[in-house]
Nucleic acid binder design. Structure first.
Lengths: 223, 223
DNA sequence: GTCGGGCGTTATGCATACCGAAGGTCATGC
DNA sequence: GCATGACCTTCGGTATGCATAACGCCCGAC
């Protein structure tokens, strides 16, 4: 699936472009949870016809980020705090398996360190998209090293599904500092090849983000 | 003069019908792993145009049962034994959570007993589809009782993804007897409200089916 | 004033038709 | 025998049209 990269998309299909665009619109908050997706307008905005757009929407429905009501169209899925808890539960279970099967060591740690330094240089509040992209890169550098291909794809999906809510808090400065610190703990565990410690600090890191996401979720409930 | 009248399914959309039909074609082996999906023929066979069919295929791609190559179309995903192992690993992790959060007791056990009796009466070799449906009902009776809605949906997807390979062995008579016996162990654990025992026997049950699926997978590799 | 129902507008779901392009196939020529 | 090129199939995408269901609005009744 790979939500993220493939930046040089010259030869990509319209469906693929629609997928990327709509995903980004959700992640950036351009499309808010609960909002209806107007097919004709969106198609015009993306300079495609309704057919490839509908195929993309159909896939996004299967991915869980859109819901569909017959004859009423698509709307952005609205997650309750219970839903978020479930997403994070699944992430914990599956990510742990990825970490257990990933190769650790100094080489991985150096690479993670380099990514974390790039993350440190980004101002999360002014450029949240870049910040999120690098944060994603940090965690998936280990996940990608795992031979568990299908599990990795599932984790990618889970990250994406909770992406909008993650964007609610990730830009906050105190959070960013805390994130950098916890990433440091993860790097240490990777360098020491201490798998249990790695899982422990990763769980802590995730638990913190889950707490923040649920807090902000409650706070963003107006209307 | 809509097509819906011909089949009598006026309530469901064409996309939904395509989804169900294609899924069944994969589960029953009418569409084999690796086989290409001819859109025009399949659309004609399902009495729909290519548009809703393509939306359904797009969703099935997101679900992992179809793969797509640009300008070459869709084909049924081919799973390696490693892939199957991953699917079963994820099933174990997620199903365990469902069982932990599901209510147990005599009432649930009675219902499972009733389902298992219906399963006993079905000849798996002559009516594999009914057999599979009831087997699914047995396991998902507990899963459905869990409050973890999203986890349940993921497990559903995982079951479906390995569905074709499950169909390779489930019809065999000795397997059927073993299945009924192991279901009995599950029922006992549910009645005793012994969650750890329930997880243990369920793991054993799943491990057995995984072993069979991988065996048959190797056996079905010709080409 | 408010509630409920009828009506028109709008958007969706789907079919048909058509086009360009990518790929595979087959025959031809060297 | 192998490379090459013409042909044809299929895919990806667009435009268009229409039937139907949902939404919104207005108006009348209470």
């Amino acid at each position: 699936m790979t939500v993220g990269e493939a930046t040089g998309q010259t030869g990509t299909s319209s469906v693929e472009r629609c997928l990327v665009e709509v995903r980004n619109m959700i992640l950036t908050g351009e499309l808010l949870p609960g909002e209806k997706v107007h097919q004709a307008d969106l198609a015009a905005q993306l300079s495609v016809s309704r057919i490839p757009l509908r195929e993309a929407l159909s896939r996004l429905q299967a991915e869980g980020v859109l819901t569909h009501r017959p004859n009423s169209g698509y709307q952005v899925s609205r997650f309750s705090s219970e839903d978020l808890t479930e997403l994070y539960l699944m992430r914990r279970l599956l990510e742990t398996e990825l970490l257990r099967s990933a190769p650790l060591g100094a080489q991985q740690a150096d690479r993670l360190q380099e990514i974390n330094e790039r993350l440190r240089k980004v101002d999360a509040s002014t450029d949240p998209e870049t910040y999120q992209a690098i944060n994603h890169e940090f965690h998936f550098h280990l996940f990608d090293a795992s031979p568990l291909r299908l599990v990795r794809e599932e984790v990618d999906r889970l990250w994406y599904r909770s992406g909008f809510y993650r964007s609610l808090y990730l830009h906050e400065a105190p959070t960013a500092l805390q994130v950098l610190h916890e990433h440091g703990l993860i790097i240490d565990a990777v360098r020491d090849e201490d798998i249990e410690e790695l899982i422990r600090v990763t769980d802590e890191h995730r638990k913190g983000t889950e707490r923040l996401a649920i807090e902000r979720l409650g706070r963003s409930r107006r209307r």
